[in-house]
Nucleic acid binder design. Structure first.
Length: 610
RNA sequence: GGGCCGGUAGCUCAGUCCGGCAGAGCGUCUGGCUUUUAACCAGACGGUCGCGUGUUCAAAUCGCGCCCGGCCCGCCA
């Protein structure tokens, strides 16, 4: 990883890169995009998670061989976010990318534990403009007690009261939403509270170690952060002020019993060698905290804190989590790739003398072409999205190449669903596809859908949206059947499951207000203004229906005939029908639809009587 | 300014690791389903593969230079 290598001759470089001994290839978070050059053609996987799993296996095999790892220990995959506000769809990367790697490793016979940290000891730095309640409703800051929140700037999330009053704390509230999201997508995770890990002592040994070796810690970090002076007095610990409850950065002295650990060069079993007997403490002064534009004022209190009463700065906290939780793999967003990953890797190796996990960068995606932003209102909660599409469709989205920036388009969700449906049909061999598509579908589909069943039925998403025009389940089913979307011999469970999509698609049509957003106006007749010929034609059609015309095909044909008889352009006549029944210019295939409604209503409406 | 990732049809994306005729779906257009709309069937249209250059018999693919977008190099995650 040394930059000095750049001047070496190219041949030597190539040899070094492919040596595969825990060097560059494995810890480069971008290796997915490059291939790791280890085995040529055989190494190429159609699914990125297989390539990652290879690297995780290489890591654990090497560590078992060198005695640094117990073969019976489960593989640990971690993700984590700060519960600072609405956890949006982008945060699902942290869950799903890890999940796919976990699933592949389980398939290969490994025991895998997927942990997820709520980094909830982080301080609230600014007030989010938008919050969310536990039912998935977005709530404006003005609707909660913003003043109470404002007084808690600088406090750890877990020390701030829940603005909704339903959870133990602000942090707990948003961590609960994360847990709900994971559950809704059927991702089994161990959700860990960072605060709890500090309080129960999980981080104590590594924190103490970092304080004992704060000279080295400072020196390493200074390579990455200009604000840290290698010879200065930076201390990698932020105590919580006992007086005002804010996190503070000013540590005035450190008291650790350095005799408690002697064998710092023994790398085996980090926790084992980092047992402590005497409580370590730091003295601090509660000074101002710079948070972006604004300053959070300190109270000036001078006090003493134990190592459980504060937190490590992020650049150290991350590698500390790897060590304390024995993390083998962690995906992270591209914002970390050139910042905290290189420093974290260096801190793990140079300061903690521990091997960092296998890394993987994922690209961010946008929502309808714009970056996620809770302040701009451009957010989508997982629960919201799952009202529009099935979980498997969302899981499919995250099975795609993580290195590509993508747009999650709610406007064009039908495209994503169509793509998923095609993916599914390719898996079941129902349609022809390229070899690449087949290989991808065969590999990935079973990881996306928990119980593949060739008898399942998928209504096309846009057709399902069309069926959303009526709330009547029997009409939905009949139309789907007569239009040939449901086979006669379909089992009942498959029919029910297929029709469930109507609820999703209907919610989508309503949310976007697109061309599929129409509903039968049963209660009252929409405003209308027809010329005499159209009126007469409608009366004529009403008579046809009143006389028993309820065959879908015949009725559809009769609409054309009636229009012709009265010299009304066919398009205009259909438009009249859509106006009367949907208050719209367009709608579903009218004959088939009217044939399903109760006759008296149709006749009266055609006569403009109700 | 330096580093990193991305850029392929109107849209969403495969293909780039390993060079071999530029692909799919959707959309659009035309026709069909004995009479526009969703679906279905057939066909058509649609591309300087960001730009340039080098290597090669051959480059979307490999090298170099550049352009555009994003991220990092302050804080925070």
């Amino acid at each position: 990883m040394s930059a000095d290598d750049a001047t070496a001759d190219p041949g030597a470089d190539a040899a070094a890169d492919s040596s595969g001994e825990g060097g560059a290839a494995e810890t480069n978070p971008y290796t997915l995009q490059r291939g790791d050059g280890e085995g040529g053609a055989d190494d190429h996987h159609v699914f990125w998670a297989d390539a990652v799993a290879d690297r995780v296996e290489t890591r654990i095999e090497r560590r078992i061989e060198s005695g640094e790892r117990d073969p019976d220990d489960p593989i640990v995959i971690k993700g984590g976010i700060s519960p600072s506000g609405v956890p949006h769809l982008g945060n699902v990367n942290e869950l799903m990318r890890g999940y796919f790697v976990a699933a592949v490793l389980r398939e290969r016979g490994h025991e895998v534990r997927q942990v997820f940290t709520a980094d909830d000891r982080d301080p609230l730095r600014k007030l989010p403009r938008t919050l969310a309640d536990l039912d998935g409703n977005l709530v404006d800051l003005g609707e909660v007690n913003a003043g109470a929140l404002g007084r808690n700037l600088g406090h750890p999330y877990t020390d701030i009261p829940d603005p909704f009053g339903c959870c133990d704390s602000y942090g707990d509230h948003f961590a609960t939403i994360i847990a709900q999201s994971a559950d809704a997508m059927d991702i089994p995770i161990d959700l860990l509270s960072n605060t709890a890990l500090y309080e129960d002592g999980t981080f104590e040994a590594v924190t103490r170690y970092l304080l004992e070796h704060r000279d080295r810690a400072r020196e390493v970090l200074s390579d990455y952060q200009d604000s840290v002076d290698a010879d200065g007095d930076y201390v990698p610990f932020n105590p919580i002020c006992a007086n005002c409850g804010k996190l503070t950065e000013t540590v005035t002295s450190v008291d650790v019993d350095s005799e408690a650990r002697s064998a710092s060069n023994s790398r085996a079993g980090s926790e084992a060698t980092r047992e402590t007997t005497t409580a370590a403490t730091v003295d601090y002064e509660c000074t101002d905290l710079e948070a972006g534009e604004q300053t959070i004022e300190g109270c000036g209190h001078e006090g003493t804190a134990t190592l459980r009463e504060g937190k490590l700065p992020w650049r150290f906290e991350w590698p500390a989590q790897w060590e304390a939780l024995d993390v083998d793999f962690e995906p992270f967003g591209k914002d970390h790739a050139e910042g905290s990953w290189p420093s974290g890797e260096d801190i793990a190796r140079t300061v903690l003398e521990n091997e960092p996990p296998v890394p993987m960068v994922y690209e961010w995606f946008t929502l309808d072409g714009e970056p996620f932003s809770s302040s701009e209102g451009n957010v989508a909660l997982v629960s919201e999205v799952l009202e529009l599409i099935e979980p498997e469709v969302l899981r499919y989205f995250f099975a795609k190449d993580p290195s590509k920036a993508r747009d999650f388009s709610i406007e064009r969700l039908d495209q994503l669903v169509d793509e998923f449906d095609r993916f599914e049909r390719i898996y079941f061999g129902e349609i022809d596809a390229s070899e690449d598509e087949k290989r991808f579908a065969e590999r990935v589909y079973p990881l996306v859908v928990s119980e593949p069943d060739p008898d399942r039925i998928r209504l096309s998403y846009t057709f399902a949206a069309v069926l959303g025009m009526t709330e009547e389940p029997s009409i939905r089913e009949e139309i789907a059947r007569t239009e040939g979307h449901i086979p006669d011999d379909a089992p009942e469970w498959a029919v029910d499951a297929a029709l469930d999509r109507v609820e999703h698609a209907q919610a989508w049509a309503r949310r976007t207000g697109n061309e599929f957003d129409y509903e039968l106006k049963r209660a009252a007749i929409p405003a209308h203004d027809f010329d005499d010929a159209t009126g007469a034609a409608l009366d004529d059609l009403a008579d046809f229906v009143a006389d028993g015309g309820d065959d879908p095909e015949e009725l559809q044909g009769e609409i054309y005939e009636t229009a012709k008889r009265h010299d009304v352009p066919v398009g205009d006549f259909f438009a009249a029908g859509y106006r009367l029944f949907f208050d719209d210019e367009q709608g579903p295939k009218l004959g088939q639809f009217l044939a399903k409604l109760d006759r008296d209503f149709v006749v009266d409406r055609l006569r403009r009587e109700r």
